[in-house]
Protein backbone atom coordinates (compact mmCIF):
# COMPACT_ATOMS: atom_id res chain seq x y z
CA UNK A 1 0.00 0.00 0.00
CA UNK A 2 2.65 2.45 1.06
CA UNK A 3 4.59 1.72 -2.12
CA UNK A 4 1.50 2.37 -4.17
CA UNK A 5 0.90 5.69 -2.47
CA UNK A 6 4.42 6.79 -3.23
CA UNK A 7 3.87 5.77 -6.80
CA UNK A 8 0.66 7.79 -6.96
CA UNK A 9 2.54 10.82 -5.66
CA UNK A 10 5.11 10.67 -8.43
CA UNK A 11 2.50 9.89 -11.09
CA UNK A 12 1.98 13.53 -12.14
CA UNK A 13 5.73 13.99 -12.45
CA UNK A 14 5.94 10.83 -14.53
CA UNK A 15 3.15 12.06 -16.80
CA UNK A 16 4.89 15.39 -17.21
CA UNK A 17 8.07 13.63 -18.32
CA UNK A 18 6.11 11.49 -20.79
CA UNK A 19 4.39 14.53 -22.26
CA UNK A 20 7.60 16.51 -22.42
CA UNK A 21 9.28 13.75 -24.42
CA UNK A 22 6.26 13.17 -26.62
CA UNK A 23 5.28 16.70 -27.55
CA UNK A 24 8.33 17.70 -29.61
CA UNK A 25 7.86 14.43 -31.49
CA UNK A 26 4.20 15.17 -32.18
CA UNK A 27 4.89 18.66 -33.34
CA UNK A 28 7.20 17.08 -35.96
CA UNK A 29 8.35 18.77 -39.12
CA UNK A 30 8.69 22.08 -37.36
CA UNK A 31 11.50 23.23 -39.57
CA UNK A 32 13.83 25.97 -38.49
CA UNK A 33 12.53 29.43 -39.24
CA UNK A 34 13.75 31.08 -42.42
CA UNK A 35 14.25 27.86 -44.34
CA UNK A 36 11.61 26.12 -46.42
CA UNK A 37 10.68 22.48 -46.56
CA UNK A 38 9.80 20.46 -49.64
CA UNK A 39 7.63 17.48 -48.77
CA UNK A 40 7.83 14.63 -51.26
CA UNK A 41 5.43 11.66 -51.20
CA UNK A 42 7.12 8.90 -53.14
CA UNK A 43 6.60 5.22 -53.91
CA UNK A 44 8.59 2.93 -51.64
CA UNK A 45 10.72 1.65 -54.54
CA UNK A 46 12.16 5.15 -55.00
CA UNK A 47 13.58 5.37 -51.51
CA UNK A 48 17.29 4.99 -52.13
CA UNK A 49 17.45 6.99 -55.36
CA UNK A 50 15.27 9.83 -54.05
CA UNK A 51 17.26 10.05 -50.84
CA UNK A 52 20.40 10.50 -52.93
CA UNK A 53 18.66 13.00 -55.18
CA UNK A 54 17.51 15.04 -52.19
CA UNK A 55 21.12 15.59 -51.15
CA UNK A 56 21.90 17.04 -54.59
CA UNK A 57 18.75 19.15 -54.49
CA UNK A 58 19.53 20.55 -51.06
CA UNK A 59 23.07 21.36 -52.19
CA UNK A 60 21.73 23.19 -55.26
CA UNK A 61 18.95 24.93 -53.32
CA UNK A 62 20.44 26.19 -50.05
CA UNK A 63 17.82 26.76 -47.36
CA UNK A 64 15.45 24.13 -48.71
CA UNK A 65 15.12 20.87 -46.83
CA UNK A 66 13.54 17.85 -48.52
CA UNK A 67 11.46 15.55 -46.35
CA UNK A 68 10.07 12.26 -47.62
CA UNK A 69 7.17 9.98 -46.98
CA UNK A 70 7.89 6.64 -48.63
CA UNK A 71 5.03 4.14 -48.81
CA UNK A 72 2.96 2.16 -51.28
CA UNK A 73 1.63 4.44 -54.02
CA UNK A 74 -2.01 3.63 -53.19
CA UNK A 75 -1.43 4.41 -49.51
CA UNK A 76 0.10 7.75 -50.39
CA UNK A 77 -2.77 8.55 -52.75
CA UNK A 78 -5.25 7.83 -49.96
CA UNK A 79 -3.34 10.10 -47.62
CA UNK A 80 -3.27 12.88 -50.22
CA UNK A 81 -7.01 12.49 -50.79
CA UNK A 82 -7.50 12.87 -47.04
CA UNK A 83 -5.64 16.17 -47.10
CA UNK A 84 -2.07 15.22 -46.26
CA UNK A 85 0.12 18.25 -47.03
CA UNK A 86 2.75 17.55 -49.67
CA UNK A 87 4.48 19.34 -52.53
CA UNK A 88 5.43 16.48 -54.85
CA UNK A 89 3.89 13.07 -55.50
CA UNK A 90 5.85 10.35 -57.29
CA UNK A 91 3.83 7.22 -58.00
CA UNK A 92 4.94 3.75 -59.06
CA UNK A 93 2.12 3.47 -61.57
CA UNK A 94 -0.01 5.61 -63.84
CA UNK A 95 -3.34 4.45 -62.38
CA UNK A 96 -2.63 5.78 -58.92
CA UNK A 97 -1.45 9.11 -60.30
CA UNK A 98 -4.62 9.29 -62.41
CA UNK A 99 -6.74 8.90 -59.26
CA UNK A 100 -4.93 11.74 -57.52
CA UNK A 101 -5.30 13.82 -60.66
CA UNK A 102 -9.04 13.08 -60.87
CA UNK A 103 -9.38 14.34 -57.31
CA UNK A 104 -8.03 17.67 -58.54
CA UNK A 105 -4.92 17.50 -56.42
CA UNK A 106 -2.36 17.78 -59.21
CA UNK A 107 -0.95 21.05 -60.54
CA UNK A 108 -0.26 20.79 -64.29
CA UNK A 109 0.54 17.49 -65.99
CA UNK A 110 2.39 14.55 -64.38
CA UNK A 111 5.74 13.69 -65.97
CA UNK A 112 6.92 10.11 -66.49
CA UNK A 113 10.44 10.30 -65.11
CA UNK A 114 11.33 6.60 -65.05
CA UNK A 115 10.21 3.10 -65.96
CA UNK A 116 10.51 -0.19 -64.15
CA UNK A 117 10.31 -3.74 -65.48
CA UNK A 118 9.68 -7.06 -63.80
CA UNK A 119 12.38 -9.56 -62.98
CA UNK A 120 12.38 -12.96 -61.37
CA UNK A 121 14.12 -12.99 -58.01
CA UNK A 122 15.38 -16.30 -56.65
CA UNK A 123 17.30 -17.14 -53.47
CA UNK A 124 21.10 -17.31 -53.89
CA UNK A 125 22.10 -20.44 -55.78
CA UNK A 126 18.65 -20.70 -57.38
CA UNK A 127 17.73 -23.93 -55.52
CA UNK A 128 14.64 -24.56 -57.65
CA UNK A 129 16.56 -24.11 -60.91
CA UNK A 130 14.36 -21.43 -62.46
CA UNK A 131 15.54 -20.49 -65.95
CA UNK A 132 12.61 -18.75 -67.62
CA UNK A 133 9.23 -17.16 -67.06
CA UNK A 134 7.56 -20.42 -68.13
CA UNK A 135 9.43 -22.26 -65.34
CA UNK A 136 7.42 -20.28 -62.81
CA UNK A 137 4.28 -22.15 -63.83
CA UNK A 138 5.85 -25.58 -63.16
CA UNK A 139 4.23 -27.74 -60.52
CA UNK A 140 5.93 -27.67 -57.13
CA UNK A 141 7.52 -24.26 -57.62
CA UNK A 142 6.72 -21.94 -54.74
CA UNK A 143 6.15 -18.66 -56.51
CA UNK A 144 5.26 -15.49 -54.65
CA UNK A 145 3.85 -12.54 -56.59
CA UNK A 146 1.94 -9.33 -55.97
CA UNK A 147 -1.86 -9.28 -55.83
CA UNK A 148 -3.50 -7.91 -58.95
CA UNK A 149 -4.79 -4.93 -56.97
CA UNK A 150 -1.30 -3.46 -56.68
CA UNK A 151 0.89 -2.24 -59.57
CA UNK A 152 3.46 -5.06 -59.51
CA UNK A 153 0.63 -7.59 -59.61
CA UNK A 154 -1.06 -5.84 -62.50
CA UNK A 155 2.25 -5.92 -64.39
CA UNK A 156 2.63 -9.64 -63.68
CA UNK A 157 -0.92 -10.25 -64.91
CA UNK A 158 -0.27 -8.48 -68.20
CA UNK A 159 2.86 -10.58 -68.76
CA UNK A 160 0.76 -13.69 -68.04
CA UNK A 161 -1.79 -12.51 -70.58
CA UNK A 162 0.73 -11.72 -73.28
CA UNK A 163 2.56 -15.04 -72.87
CA UNK A 164 -0.48 -17.23 -72.24
CA UNK A 165 1.19 -18.57 -69.09
CA UNK A 166 -0.98 -19.24 -66.08
CA UNK A 167 0.83 -18.72 -62.79
CA UNK A 168 -0.44 -20.08 -59.50
CA UNK A 169 1.48 -18.30 -56.75
CA UNK A 170 1.43 -19.69 -53.21
CA UNK A 171 0.97 -16.14 -51.98
CA UNK A 172 -0.21 -12.87 -53.51
CA UNK A 173 1.33 -10.08 -51.51
CA UNK A 174 0.30 -6.47 -51.06
CA UNK A 175 3.64 -5.01 -51.91
CA UNK A 176 6.70 -5.88 -53.88
CA UNK A 177 8.83 -5.59 -50.74
CA UNK A 178 6.77 -8.35 -49.12
CA UNK A 179 7.44 -10.54 -52.17
CA UNK A 180 11.15 -9.78 -51.97
CA UNK A 181 11.17 -10.54 -48.24
CA UNK A 182 9.79 -14.01 -48.87
CA UNK A 183 12.48 -14.73 -51.45
CA UNK A 184 15.25 -13.37 -49.23
CA UNK A 185 14.09 -15.51 -46.30
CA UNK A 186 14.17 -18.55 -48.59
CA UNK A 187 10.49 -19.35 -48.07
CA UNK A 188 9.72 -18.89 -51.75
CA UNK A 189 11.52 -20.52 -54.69
CA UNK A 190 10.93 -17.45 -56.81
CA UNK A 191 9.29 -14.06 -56.67
CA UNK A 192 8.10 -11.65 -59.33
CA UNK A 193 9.53 -8.27 -58.43
CA UNK A 194 10.96 -5.23 -60.20
CA UNK A 195 14.48 -5.00 -61.55
CA UNK A 196 15.13 -2.20 -59.04
CA UNK A 197 14.12 -4.42 -56.10
CA UNK A 198 16.64 -7.06 -57.11
CA UNK A 199 19.26 -4.34 -57.41
CA UNK A 200 18.51 -2.97 -53.95
CA UNK A 201 18.53 -6.45 -52.38
CA UNK A 202 22.19 -6.74 -53.31
CA UNK A 203 23.55 -10.28 -53.05
CA UNK A 204 20.63 -11.58 -51.01
CA UNK A 205 18.73 -12.63 -54.15
CA UNK A 206 19.70 -13.56 -57.69
CA UNK A 207 17.95 -12.05 -60.65
CA UNK A 208 16.70 -13.86 -63.71
CA UNK A 209 15.73 -11.34 -66.36
CA UNK A 210 13.16 -12.53 -68.88
CA UNK A 211 12.35 -10.99 -72.28
CA UNK A 212 8.60 -11.34 -71.73
CA UNK A 213 8.85 -8.59 -69.07
CA UNK A 214 8.88 -6.12 -71.97
CA UNK A 215 5.12 -6.64 -72.17
CA UNK A 216 4.65 -4.71 -68.94
CA UNK A 217 6.93 -1.73 -68.66
CA UNK A 218 5.71 0.34 -65.78
CA UNK A 219 6.03 4.14 -66.04
CA UNK A 220 6.63 6.20 -62.89
CA UNK A 221 4.86 9.58 -63.03
CA UNK A 222 5.62 12.51 -60.73
CA UNK A 223 3.68 15.74 -60.32
CA UNK A 224 3.61 19.00 -58.41
CA UNK A 225 0.59 19.02 -56.12
CA UNK A 226 -2.06 21.72 -56.28
CA UNK A 227 -1.93 22.26 -52.53
CA UNK A 228 1.80 22.94 -52.54
CA UNK A 229 2.90 26.18 -50.92
CA UNK A 230 6.27 25.88 -52.61
CA UNK A 231 5.48 25.14 -56.27
CA UNK A 232 8.65 26.71 -57.62
CA UNK A 233 10.87 24.42 -55.56
CA UNK A 234 8.62 21.45 -56.35
CA UNK A 235 9.02 22.19 -60.07
CA UNK A 236 12.80 22.36 -59.68
CA UNK A 237 12.72 18.95 -57.96
CA UNK A 238 10.88 17.46 -60.97
CA UNK A 239 13.40 19.11 -63.32
CA UNK A 240 16.22 17.50 -61.37
CA UNK A 241 14.43 14.12 -61.64
CA UNK A 242 14.02 14.35 -65.40
CA UNK A 243 17.42 15.94 -65.94
CA UNK A 244 20.72 14.12 -66.54
CA UNK A 245 21.66 13.99 -62.84
CA UNK A 246 18.34 12.46 -61.82
CA UNK A 247 18.30 10.01 -64.69
CA UNK A 248 21.82 8.88 -63.84
CA UNK A 249 20.92 8.16 -60.22
CA UNK A 250 17.72 6.38 -61.24
CA UNK A 251 19.55 4.31 -63.86
CA UNK A 252 22.08 3.23 -61.23
CA UNK A 253 19.17 1.91 -59.17
CA UNK A 254 17.93 -0.10 -62.15
CA UNK A 255 15.21 2.20 -63.47
CA UNK A 256 14.66 2.68 -67.19
CA UNK A 257 14.68 6.18 -68.68
CA UNK A 258 11.59 8.36 -68.42
CA UNK A 259 9.80 9.70 -71.45
CA UNK A 260 9.80 13.34 -70.41
Amino acid sequence: MRGNRKLAAVLPALLAVLLATALPGCAGGGAAAGSSTLTVFAAASLKSSFTELAERFEAENPGTTVTFSFAGSADLATQLNQGAPADVFASADAGTMAKVQEAGLVDGEPRDFATNTLAIAVPPGNPAGIRSFADLAKAGIKLVACAEQVPCGAAAASVEDSTGTVLSPVSEENSVTDVLGKVISGEADAGLVYVTDVRSAGGRVESIPFPEAGAAVNPYPAAVLAGSSNKAAAGRFLDLLAGPEGQEILAAAGFGPGSR
Binding site: A147, S171, E172, E173, N174
Partner: peptide, 17 residues
Protein backbone atom coordinates in the same frame (compact mmCIF):
# COMPACT_ATOMS: atom_id res chain seq x y z
CA UNK B 1 1.79 -17.12 -43.80
CA UNK B 2 1.45 -14.99 -46.92
CA UNK B 3 -1.79 -13.98 -48.57
CA UNK B 4 -3.76 -16.24 -50.90
CA UNK B 5 -7.51 -16.33 -51.30
CA UNK B 6 -9.09 -19.24 -49.44
CA UNK B 7 -5.77 -20.47 -48.05
CA UNK B 8 -4.10 -17.74 -46.00
CA UNK B 9 -5.95 -14.52 -46.81
CA UNK B 10 -8.03 -13.95 -43.69
CA UNK B 11 -10.52 -11.12 -43.35
CA UNK B 12 -8.01 -8.55 -42.02
CA UNK B 13 -5.66 -9.34 -44.92
CA UNK B 14 -8.53 -9.07 -47.39
CA UNK B 15 -9.40 -5.66 -45.93
CA UNK B 16 -5.78 -4.59 -46.26
CA UNK B 17 -5.73 -5.67 -49.91
Amino acid sequence: AGSLQGVTRTLPLEIYL
